[in-house]
Design a protein around this nucleic acid. Structure first.
Lengths: 117, 117
DNA sequence: TTGACATATACCGATATGGGTATATATTGC
DNA sequence: GCAATATATACCCATATCGGTATATGTCAA
């Protein structure tokens, strides 16, 4: 045993700067691989490989369109990361505590109205 | 050129599960290296190495105490991560946008009065 | 079918990574 | 000084990672 698993989870997928860039672009809407290549200035195989990692962790989804493949963002895959850092935010942001209070209050008021989402 | 920089930023520091564990423990307060070793069941050199990475990105701070070194959390180093994922949260949580609106509204009201309810 | 275009995959080489073990560097107490 | 404790570093090894180049796969058009 010499090394632990890596690219299998969202944290690692996002640790790579290029992959964050890709997600940032996809946040602007669906893109073909070539569009990403052009916009990011990376080589096509590299983009495809990064996309594979992102697909693997569910951060992007694909859709075939003729001979292209259109990738789109699936931000929900980043939720674990958000949930994890969120706890630490309280360390530096006092405003967050205030926000939490507001959230609770709002929850009470919403009881019976908005179910999920 | 065959590989990009890695452990130099917070994203990568936190991509390693053991390092997240270390931070999670430190969230409970200052700990000595040995305390971390005991609590996490890792080998001492490994813990020291992970701590070095975390120190490098500013996620932890050290304080000498006799022959021990007490490490403490510095959550602010994780802010870039939080800021980055936060934008994506709106992708999966519509509620967040709503909450933001509420916060703003509340702030306006707080500017001289406390009238809600 | 042939050919152009779009994307994925295979392979290679360089390097970083993480675990393991041994050892160096404090620091304290005798 | 010497021993013991606490931590950091050095070194080795196995492997994953990333970029680069070449090639395979897939799809459309003529």
């Amino acid at each position: 045993m010499a090394r632990a698993a890596t690219t299998a989870d969202a944290f690692n997928a996002v640790a790579e700067p290029r992959r964050r860039q890709i997600l940032d672009v996809l946040a602007g809407g669906e893109r073909s691989v070539n569009a990403l290549v052009a916009q990011l200035g990376l080589a096509q195989p590299q983009v495809s490989k990064h996309l594979r990692v992102l697909r693997h962790v569910g951060a992007v989804a694909v859709r075939g369109d003729g001979r292209r493949r259109l990738y789109r963002l699936n931000g929900e895959a980043l939720k674990p990361i958000h949930d994890w850092v969120r706890a630490y935010e309280e360390t530096w942001s006092e405003r967050f505590a205030e926000l939490d209070a507001v959230l609770d209050e709002l929850k009470e008021k919403e009881e019976g109205d908005d179910g999920d989402r």
